[in-house]
Design a binder for these strands. Structure first.
Lengths: 340, 340
DNA sequence: CTGAAAGCGCTTACAG
DNA sequence: CTGAAAGCGCTTACAG
């Protein structure tokens, strides 16, 4: 230990808490408390500490903090894909909110593989993150145990699940699938196909909503499921496949805007009129849909708000504050343009 | 200090280096060295340490490492935007490569604002990152000083600059702008407009290449620069603006595929034939271009490879290894489809 | 409301 | 090639 008389700038040249305490004429613990805004420090001392911090240009060392408190200022955010604008919007909003609250984001991309998610969790949990933001509820048992065992506050995004102890911000994928299908029925479409890619859990929930809305009218032959990732090209291919397989189809509900936009382009290429010959709708309301010919009808999903609210909820949890609504449903909105 | 006899599992229940050392019958320092793969540890001891690690399920604490060595295992990656697929591709490749090499990424979005970049740098540098990946060379003097003063290895992406001490992986934006323009000229187009958005430094470099290729034929009236972010909608608007302002235009070189795709859609809407009435080309070869009507001619930029190679270069720097080519030019490629 | 002591779990010199 | 000592810069109990 250094004798108190030999205190000096830290090896790196940066000022330490010690320096601040010395300059403020308080103990390091008091300086620490003042810095973190713990009440129970006299106002005057807080002021002296603040002044010393400013004067010395002191910045706390996150590593030292993390080591001493066994908790970092970083939040792990796990999303399936970076190549889907949906998750990028979510991420952008969450990251911005977290940063404003003093937390840094550690981003992990799972590529829709539960095993990859588990590996990322294992790696990132080593950092003792302050919080966790994960997508949906579909994960390995081990991942679930890892999350629970870590004791780190966790918010789930994109879906809701009303179990006690679970926090989530999302909307009902099934209700959204139901609503768009019902709208198509209301408009008089009778042979409504459902075309989906990726086949992740949320896609399947939308399919469930589609079936539910159709009720007795549901025909399995009208469901087209392709596990490949969605893209314009796949949408184009699926569009043709649907028309060829089910000649009397009068509407196609694509599970994603990428697919639907690709289908619209293919219809143009083929000279097939939308919505006269066949209606086309999408999902998510990604950018560009309104520019299509005809403009795409779709379901607007509130991913930005989800990112924002999930980050807020997580911040509350990390600060041990109460969370009013642990299962926050942000809804969705039908955007009816000209493609149906 | 604990007397050696009272060593136990750490407070959190996780095994510590001490535990590993004890189990392996070596000193903690030796265990530490064995773990980090420092040669100068006898093979047999390494083996004993490895076994102890496996047996105890030991995972090192990054915070303790960072504090003791004043260097973390995190790399800061700064990109302008998350809403541009270009940077997402770059990021994805870089992050994957870094993770495989044992580094975590701390992602910062600058929104093309040097001040935001500077603030992010200031925040993230507190973490003593092991490395830095930044976009381009356009930043505040303070940011430059921050980077240099930190002593943290830094690789610049998207552009090249041959100054000693600077590391970069990219391609010549100007040469790319030149090449596409020259190709249009070669095909007989004479009134070639240049339409750009965002107006970031790389956009301006492409404009420079465009002017250079045109030489004496260059006409400032054919340059359309809009500082708004690029989008389908803006591309559509610019397309009309160009045609209305310069009726004899016969080709439009859009600075970005978003813009060009929006223009193509607008041409369809207006019934203007591409490339017969006017040719359209884009930049970057983003997804969807090949699906357009007509398929979009564009410049393919190697952002994935840039991310990969930049990460590799940074890993070499962080390991104090030699870097063969500190100014790596990965080139570009004209993708000539039917829109010109 | 404030502080002295101890310790978080590693690694960096310094020896030998 | 290996180790004993010291310390990285904070915060957590424990007192008062």
């Amino acid at each position: 230990m250094n004798p108190p008389s030999s205190k000096r700038r830290r090896a790196t040249g940066r000022a330490t808490l010690q320096d601040v305490a010395l300059a403020a004429g308080v103990s390091p613990i008091t300086a620490s408390r003042a810095l973190r805004g713990e009440r129970s420090v006299a106002a005057e001392l807080v002021q002296r500490v603040t002044a010393a911090v400013a004067q010395l240009g002191y910045v706390p060392d996150p590593a030292a903090r993390a080591l001493a408190s066994s908790r970092s200022n970083q939040v792990v955010v796990l999303i399936p894909l970076l190549s889907n604008a949906l998750f990028v919007d979510l991420l952008d909003a969450a990251q911005r909110t977290l940063l404003a609250a003093g937390y840094q984001s550690l981003i992990g991309v799972t590529h829709y593989h539960p095993e990859e998610e588990e590996a990322l969790l294992r790696t990132y949990l080593m950092n003792r993150p302050a919080g966790l933001l994960v997508t949906g509820f579909d994960r390995t048992e081990a991942a679930r145990a890892l999350i629970h065992g870590s004791g780190v506050p966790c918010v789930h995004v994109m879906e809701n699940r009303g179990e006690p102890g679970l926090y989530s911000v999302g909307f009902s994928q099934q209700a959204a699938g139901h609503a768009m299908t019902a709208e198509l029925m209301r408009r008089g479409y009778r042979r409504i196909a459902f075309a989906a890619a990726q086949l992740d859990p949320r896609t399947l929930q939308r399919a469930q909503g589609y079936r539910e809305a159709l009720g007795a009218a549901h025909d399995p032959a009208l469901e087209f499921m392709d596990a490949a990732p969605s893209s314009f090209a796949l949408g184009a291919a699926m569009f043709e496949r649907v028309l060829n397989t089910v000649p009397d189809v009068d509407a196609i509900f694509f599970n994603n805007d990428d697919l639907a936009q690709g289908a619209l382009l293919q219809a143009l290429r083929l000279g097939i009129r939308v919505p006269e010959r066949v209606a086309v709708t999408g999902f998510n309301d990604l950018t560009g849909g309104g520019q299509m010919l005809p403009p795409l009808s779709t379901v607007r999903t509130p991913r930005g708000e989800i990112g924002l609210e999930a980050a807020r909820m997580l911040v509350a949890l990390m600060r041990n504050e109460a969370v009013a609504e642990p299962c926050l449903d942000l809804g969705f909105e039908l955007v009816l343009r000209e493609s149906c």
